[in-house]
């Protein structure tokens, strides 16, 4: 019990003094997950919009696939990206293994299905009356589609933030493809795993607290967005 209390005290001291190593790990984590999220949003929102708005053969299958991929085990993704980027793999010539690019790739693969699925779901839940209203007011099919996407904006934002949550909290995949190299590919989750193994609980706890705070902030933003979008009606 004493060691836990001592760990917490040292952790708060590290956070309070903005320890250089701690700060570097936090910044790298935010960079990797933030970049993965931006890529996921750039690909995922249009893909979700197409799945939500267009009817085409194979659409149902793709939606089911995306829903399944939402629960992809991170270690499997890590293994897959490792095989792709390893020296003998098809993309080995790029020399990306054990770099932050490899971590971004892995996190993008994990976040993308969440962004696509939740965007698609937000778009299909817009009431058909909205499209009809747009058309009766003179919208072209493209303008009507943009109107529907705009109506789904809170759901889409929720999807993007849920993707960020998935990317930030992930450890298995980035440990495999990033290698947890100090000052280079060491992020919050991998450091927690490593430092816990070493019995160095102060840094692990400090990072755990920060990760929890970030997670809490993400959830608060998500809740606020969902509350704002909750005023829906069939009028």
């Amino acid at each position: 019990m004493d060691s836990i209390i001592e760990g917490f005290l040292k952790a708060f001291s590290l956070i309070y003094n903005l320890d250089r190593e701690l700060l570097g790990i936090i910044i790298l984590s935010l960079e990797v997950s933030g970049t993965a999220l931006i890529i996921s949003a750039i690909i995922g929102v249009p893909a979700g919009a197409v799945l939500g708005l267009k009817k085409f053969p194979g659409r149902g299958f793709i939606i089911s696939l995306m829903n399944t991929f939402m629960g992809l085990p991170p270690v499997v993704v890590g293994l897959f990206v490792y095989l792709l980027l390893s020296r003998r793999g098809p993309l080995g010539f790029m020399g990306l293994l054990y770099t932050s690019s490899a971590m971004i790739t892995a996190q993008t693969i994990l976040a993308l299905p969440i962004v696509i699925s939740l965007c698609q779901s937000a778009i299909v839940s817009v009431k058909p009356i909205i499209r009809q209203a747009a058309v009766t007011l003179g919208a072209t099919p493209y303008q009507a589609a943009i109107t529907i996407i705009r109506e789904a904006r809170y759901g889409i934002l929720s999807g993007i933030i849920a993707g960020l949550g998935r990317a930030m909290g992930e450890v298995g995949a980035i440990l495999i493809v990033g290698g947890n190299i100090a000052g280079y590919t060491r992020v919050m989750t991998t450091t927690i795993a490593l430092e816990t193994d070493k019995g160095n609980f102060e840094l692990a706890l400090a990072l755990g607290i920060i990760l929890l705070i970030i997670s809490l902030l993400i959830n608060i933003v998500l809740h606020l967005i969902q509350r704002k979008g909750m005023i829906t009606t069939e009028r």
Partner: peptide, 25 residues
């Protein structure tokens, strides 16, 4: 233009709802 019994309110302000038809033109 046709006004439906349920008009399909856009989730924004009254002003932006009314401005919609003009903006798309």
């Amino acid at each position: 233009t046709l006004l439906l019994p349920k008009i399909g309110v856009f989730n924004t302000t009254v002003f932006k709802n009314v401005a919609y038809g003009l903006k798309i033109r």
